[in-house]
Simulated scan of single mutants.
Amino acid sequence: MQTYINDCLLWQDKRATGMFKSCPEDFVVEEGLDWDFKGQGEHLFLQIEKTNCNTAWVAKQLARFYKVPPRDVGYSGLKDRQAVTKQYFSIRLPGIKPGSYELPEHKEYRVIAHHLHDKKLKRGYHQYNDFTVRLRDVTGDHAVLQQRLAFICQHGCPNFFDSQRFGHNKHNLHRLSAWIKGDIEPRKRDEKGLLLSALRASVFNRQLAERVKKNSWQRVLTGDTVILDGSNSRFQIEKVDEIIRRRAVHKDIHPAGVLVGADSDFVGNSERLAILMRREHLQESYRSFRLNVRQLKWDCQGKDWLIRMRLPTGAYASGVIRQLFRLTGK
C-alpha cells in the first residue's frame, strides 16, 4: 500500500527548495471557530496557544487539571505538534458559573481566551484554519514560484492527504497491512481509527493521482460526484453542461473521490478487510479532489518566503507547500 503523494503533485520539475519547520515558529496555525458563545452553560471553552506539543496531550493535561474524565474534554481538530497553534478546547464542568473557575498555567501552552457555553466542542466543528508558513534558505527560480502561486490562487490545487496521515515512515500503513493479514489486533479504538484513516487516505490519493495524471482533478466529468464548496453537500453529475462547467471554473463545485467504507467496491477483494470495516462501522463518504486555497498571500524576505493561506477543515497546508517546494529539514 502506497501514499501516492508524489503522484498528486502538479509540477515535478523546477520546484524551489526550502527548509520547512526549522522551528515551531515557522509553522503557525489558528483555528477558525466562529461561534457566538452564550456566556453561560456547563462547558468552559479555552482558546489555547500551544508550542511543540500535540492536541491530545493538551486535552489530557486539561482533564487532569479540572479533574474530569478525558471524555469531558472536547476539541475540534488535531493540530500539528511541531508548530505554534491556537485552538479551542471545551471542558464539561456542571454547575460552573461565570468567574468561578481557575485557568491552567503551563510552560508549553497558555490560555489566551475563555468563555462559557451550553454545548460541547466536537470533532470537525471549526470552519477553517489560518496558516502562516515560513520557508527558509529558499533556492530556485522565483519567477516560476510566483507563477505557480498565482495558479493556485486562481485554480486551487490537488487536495491529497499528506504524509502526516500515514505516520512516520508510513508506520500506519505498515500496521494496517499487519492488521489486515491478522498478524496484529489493535486494542485501542483510537489506533483502529488511525489505521483505517490511513487506508482511506491511500485509496483516495490513488484516485486523485489518476485525475492529476489526466489533468482532470479540477474538472467535472460525467458521472462524477461533486461537493459544494465550503460544505458537505454533494450530488451526482448526469450530464456536464455549460452551467456545470462554469460553476467548476468558479470553484463553486468540486469533483470528489470516495473515502471507502464497509460497503465500497474496493473492499470486495478482501473479506477480512470488509469484516474489519463493518466491525468498526466505517461508512463511505466523499472528499473533494480540489482544494480551494483562500486568502493566499506570499512575501519574499531575503532568503525566506512567508506564505499565508486559509484552508477548510481536513486540508493540509504542508500539501500546498509541497506543490511548490522540495522540502528539507533542519
Rank of each mutant, 00 (worst) to 15 (best):
E108A: 10
K213F: 07
D26L: 00
L228V: 15
H114N: 14
A317R: 01
E284K: 04
F204M: 06
V28F: 11
L103Y: 06
A150H: 05
W57K: 01
L9I: 06
T85H: 02
P255F: 12
L194K: 06
A16V: 02
T225R: 06
V73G: 07
L195W: 03
N269H: 13
P69H: 08
D118K: 09
G77Q: 06
V203C: 03
K38M: 12
F161H: 13
D80M: 04
H114K: 06
Q146L: 08
R134E: 09
L62H: 12
R175L: 13
K181Y: 12
E49L: 01
L33S: 08
D141C: 09
L103E: 07
K297C: 10
L78T: 09
D162T: 01
L135H: 04
T17K: 11
F325V: 01
D263C: 05
S288A: 15
S76H: 05
G302C: 04
D224S: 11
N169S: 12
L221E: 14
N215E: 12
Q218E: 10
W35A: 11
D241T: 08
K213S: 14
G18M: 03
E238V: 10
W11D: 05
E280W: 07
Q40T: 14
E185F: 00
Y109P: 00
L221M: 14
D118Q: 11
S318P: 04
S202R: 01
R175Q: 13
E49Q: 13
T17L: 11
